[in-house]
Structure formats: structure tokens, C-alpha cells
């Protein structure tokens, strides 16, 4: 490599390849997966603008080519469906609620765990709180039904005591609390992993120096631990916003009948019931594309905001 003045000239391509080939090889499988499972299927979004009939022609590709284009008709139909707006509203309220009542919990738990000195206790607690993440939603919902449902443990205990049990699993008004509780139980432990990793990178000397200067527990938390976590928190927050219109699927599918469409229909179940089960793929793709577009706008906005506050965000222009 040669340097001329302050600008650095790039090495020729061959030299860079020779230097970086192990890195490129390592990236290759991931890039291939991304191509096959993300970029190629993205082309399928074309059906959002078609009266798509999967049975035209001799193959799926021919069906795609032969289905007539109908412009924005699918979107018009989508926006004219009241159930769509209900689902959108439900999805957004669940996202907003969980942003406030779920998102901070893994941070708090990670800080707590980080302050536990005994390695054994910490590992044990971590293992236990990670565990529910690996349960499927069917299991989680069944577990909640068996614990809190009308024939569950709590209800039966209350009945034995002569108290009539409250409706927990079937009350549409408190459904938001219920689904958030389920998410917390399932994923709060799993969510700590990134934060624990970030905490472990904070130089312990900082704590020691602060302690020596007389900083108490709270001041160390406020001035050292949280600032250390800030880039990670901002990053995850932005990514979460990009996913604002995805709040899960099975969880709502399973409990939809219990509390009704008004409370439990989210965008993903809407697409499932109004497009997948009825075979109206164009309509479903339109809803999916709408979701993706909103997600993209939210990510861009949040990233911009992060830059304004001096954070790196998900990416930045170099």
C-alpha cells in the first residue's frame, strides 16, 4: 500500500482479493441465503399489482407472467376494507404498548444479572430465563391456559376457596396485557443476551475509578453502564421500529376466537384469513407490501433521528 498525501489510494482489485479472500468466502454462504430467501422472493411482490391466479400456464413462473396486471386495484380494495384498518390499529397499539412495557425489561434484567457476582447463580438464572424462548407459541398459550384459563390452576384454586375466578384468557379488554405478559415470559430472558454482551465490553476500571471517586451504585449505573449500552439500545430500537407492523402471528391466531377479531386481529392474521385461506394472493401481497413500505419509512426516520442525537444508528453514510 502506498500513501500519497492525505488521501489513501485503494489497492488494485487483485491485491485486495488476494488479501481478503478468506473473509469473502466466509461471507458467501450468508450472502447466498440472503439472495435465495430474501431478494428472489422479493420479486414475487409483483402479484400485488396482479389479479394473480396460481393455476395459469404450466408452471408457477408462467402463472406469474400470465396473470393480468390490474394496477392498484388490490391496494384500493385493501384500503376499502374496514377490517384492514382495525387490524392496523390493533397492530400499532400492540407495538406501542410493548415498546413501553416490554422493550425496557431485558435491559433492566441484563443490568440486574450483570450485578450478580456469583457466576454460578448468574448462569443458573440465565439458563432458566432463556428457556421459554425455545417453546413454540402453541406451548406458551397452552401453558397460560392451563395456569390462568377458566379451567386452569389459578381458577380452580380460587373456586376451591369459594371465589369466582376472573376472566383472564377470554377478556378482549385486557387482551393487550395478556399478550404482553406472554411475550415477556417467553422472550425477556432471550432479549438480555445482546445487552449482557454490551455490558461485558465496558472497561471495569471505569467502575473502579468511579467507585474510588465516591460514585454510588445509581451514579455508576447512570453514568457508566447505561451510556455503555446506549448504541445497542438505539440500534435495537430502530430495528424494532422497522418491524412495527409485525407483532407475531401464531400467538394471535391461537387466541383469536377467544377474544374475537376486534381485539386479536393483527395485520399478519388479517392477511392469513382474508388472503391466504381465500386464495386471494394479490390482495395478500398488497397488504404485505404496504407493511414493508411502512417498515422501511419507519427505519429511515428512526435512523435519521438517531444521527441527530449523535448515535451511529443502523448504518451511516461514511
Amino acid at each position: 500500500m502506498t500513501r500519497t498525501g492525505t488521501t489513501r489510494r485503494r489497492a488494485p482489485l487483485r491485491a485486495r482479493l488476494r488479501r481478503d479472500w478468506p473473509l469473502l468466502v466466509m461471507v458467501l454462504p450468508g450472502a447466498l441465503l440472503l439472495l435465495v430467501f430474501h431478494y428472489v422472493p422479493t420479486l414475487g411482490n409483483v402479484v400485488a399489482f396482479q389479479d394473480y391466479n396460481p393455476y395459469l400456464g404450466d408452471s408457477a413462473l408462467q402463472a406469474l407472467v400470465n396473470s393480468p396486471f390490474i394496477g392498484l386495484d388490490n391496494f384500493r380494495a385493501l384500503f376499502a376494507t374496514p377490517a384492514f384498518w382495525d387490524a392496523l390499529w390493533n397492530t400499532l397499539s400492540i407495538t406501542a404498548f410493548q415498546l413501553v412495557f416490554f422493550f425496557p425489561l431485558p435491559i433492566a434484567l441484563a443490568l440486574l444479572l450483570d450485578s450478580v457476582l456469583s457466576r454460578r447463580v448468574r448462569t443458573l438464572v440465565q439458563t432458566i430465563v432463556y428457556l421459554p424462548h425455545f417453546f413454540s407459541w402453541v406451548l406458551v398459550v397452552t401453558f397460560f391456559v392451563q395456569m390462568l384459563g377458566g379451567a386452569g390452576l389459578l381458577a380452580q384454586e380460587l373456586r376451591q376457596a369459594g371465589i369466582s375466578p376472573p376472566e383472564i384468557m377470554t377478556n378482549p379488554d385486557t387482551f393487550l396485557l395478556l399478550v404482553t405478559a406472554e411475550v415477556v415470559w417467553k422472550d425477556v430472558g432471550w432479549g438480555t443476551i445482546v445487552f449482557l454482551a454490551a455490558l461485558s465490553t465496558i472497561d471495569p476500571h471505569l467502575y473502579e475509578a468511579a467507585a474510588a471517586d465516591g460514585a454510588g451504585r445509581w451514579r455508576r449505573l447512570w453514568h457508566i453502564a447505561l451510556p455503555g449500552l446506549r448504541p445497542v439500545i438505539v440500534l435495537l430500537l430502530i430495528l424494532r421500529l422497522g418491524d412495527a407492523l409485525s407483532v407475531g402471528f401464531e400467538q394471535f391466531l391461537l387466541q383469536r376466537e377467544a377474544v374475537g377479531r376486534q381485539a386479536a386481529e393483527v395485520l399478519d392474521t388479517f392477511v392469513y384469513y382474508h388472503a391466504i385461506t381465500t386464495g386471494d394472493y394479490g390482495f395478500g401481497a398488497a397488504a404485505g407490501l404496504f407493511k414493508a413500505a411502512v417498515g422501511l419509512v419507519l427505519i429511515l426516520l428512526a435512523n435519521k433521528l438517531a444521527h441527530l442525537f449523535g448515535e451511529r444508528g443502523v448504518y451511516s453514510r461514511s
Binding site: T142, V145, G149, L253, Q255
Partner: peptide, 14 residues
């Protein structure tokens, strides 16, 4: 009147 089993009422997976 609560004559249907609560598990059936609460989840599609019952």
C-alpha cells in the same frame, strides 16, 4: 352460562 369448557373457549389449540 359457562357450560362450554374454558379451554375450548380460550384457545384454538384445545
Amino acid at each position: 352460562e359457562g357450560l362450554v369448557h374454558p379451554d375450548v373457549v380460550a384457545s384454538r389449540g384445545a
